[in-house]
Simulated assay, not measured.
Amino acid sequence: MPGGRPRAFDPETALDRALELFWRQGYEGTSLSELTMAMKINRTSLYGAFGNKEQLFRKVLDRYFTSPGAFAAEALEAPTARTVVERLLLGAIELTAGPHTPHGCLSVNSIHACGPDSEPIRQEVIARRMASEAALRRRFEQAADLPTGCDPRVLAQLVYTIIDGIAVQAASGHTRDQLHQVADLALRTLFQLSS
């Protein structure tokens, strides 16, 4: 006997729509009604396919970090620390100020716009960001081109501080050209001692 009715929607498309909405409005700023409307599904289908809002958001985070945010992991494969940082900064500009994405950063918005009821989500985002920063620190520990006397942990923290700043500036309306100027200056400043 065949199972239940087939889904009348594509879960991948629905997830992409949820990602875009959360990215634009943040976790707390997005209601279930807005999600079902954007995803073009009803609440029963949302719960059946993705779980509750928190579970859906965790799936959205997975999608964010492995699809539009995949540049961050890929950048770690670059041959030099300078190239790693360059790819991270340029990737952050495209992610947060590109023509095909909402301006700003999903994870930055989610950390700063969560109230007490959403603390588990905030902690989830922080944990993922800390893991990314730790991966960058480990990559810097292997690099031969770090500036003299530079602590890999502090440099990784500084790079992520710049990336967060790029996201905030993008959300504030700064253009890609303006953000490229910031990235160029950051690279020259960070690696002037090693060139």
Rank of each mutant, 00 (worst) to 15 (best):
Q55D: 14
R129M: 13
L88G: 06
E119M: 04
L88W: 03
Q55V: 05
E86L: 03
F140K: 10
A75C: 01
A127D: 14
A143S: 14
T101I: 00
S110Q: 03
R82Q: 15
R128P: 04
L89S: 05
I93N: 07
M130I: 11
A143G: 06
F50S: 05
R63C: 00
E86K: 13
L76W: 12
S118H: 07
R138D: 15
L89H: 06
N42S: 07
Q55M: 13
S67V: 13
L95A: 14
V125K: 08
P147S: 11
P102Y: 11
G98D: 11
F50N: 08
L76N: 10
R139P: 05
L56S: 08
D62P: 03
D117R: 02
R43F: 02
Y47C: 00
C105R: 02
G98K: 11
I93V: 15
K59H: 13
Q55P: 00
D117N: 04
V108E: 12
Y47W: 11
G51E: 09
A97N: 08
R63W: 15
E74Y: 01
S45V: 04
H103I: 02
G104W: 09
D145V: 10
R87A: 06
L95Y: 09
H103N: 15
G69H: 07
E54N: 02
H100G: 04
N109Q: 13
A78W: 10
P120A: 06
K59G: 04
I93W: 10
R128V: 08
F140M: 11
H100I: 08
A70L: 12
L106N: 05
L89Q: 06
G51T: 12
E141M: 14
N52K: 10
A72M: 14
G51L: 11
G48A: 15
H112V: 13
G48V: 01
R139S: 07
Y47A: 12
F140N: 10
N52F: 03
S118C: 09
T80C: 05
N109M: 13
D145Y: 07
G69C: 09
E77V: 01
A143Y: 07
T96R: 06
L90N: 14
Q142Y: 00
A135P: 01
R139H: 06
S45K: 05
A81D: 07
G115C: 07
P102L: 11
G48K: 12
N42R: 06
A134Q: 14
A72G: 00
P116M: 03
S110W: 01
T66I: 03
E74L: 09
I111A: 03
P116C: 03
E77Y: 01
A144Y: 00
L56H: 09
T101Y: 08
A97I: 05
L56R: 07
I126M: 13
